[in-house]
Amino acid sequence: MADTVALELVSPEKLLMSEEVELAILPGSEGDLGVQPGHSPVIATVRPGTIAVFKGNTVEKRIFVAGGFLEITPERCTVLAETAIAVEDIDQTAAKQEIADLQDDVKVAKDDAARAKAEAALAVAEAKLEAAVSPAYA
């Protein structure tokens, strides 16, 4: 059995990342999923959070995703994400500002649909800041 698994990160606009990794931890909506070669096939939804790519025992790369879907087979792991950004590229002040703006949006939302939408966006923004402030698996 190969000792690496092909990790692919795809956004609607383009293929963001495609490389062989030893271990990656993905934020599934019902808990984190550690992916190593030979993982049993899974299809799951992704919550806003950090994808951690491991090399040996240390994290080589952290990528923030704002939700999406993932498909795991023994040989590969595909993440369909709408937005993905490297954790070190997150602008913390901008993220804080975004949270403040969205909190206002939630307050002034006129109906339930608008409020739900704003709250979902707020959850993403908070997860983004969280990912930047306290990196996962440090």
Partner: peptide, 25 residues
């Protein structure tokens, strides 16, 4: 033909999230 997938959460829930997304795609 492939191996059977596990679903997390259930199939219906994923499908419900996936279908509108597929529409956009």
């Amino acid at each position: 033909g492939d191996a059977q997938y596990e679903y997390e959460p259930e199939e219906e829930a994923i499908l419900e999230a996936l279908l509108p997304k597929n529409l956009s795609v």
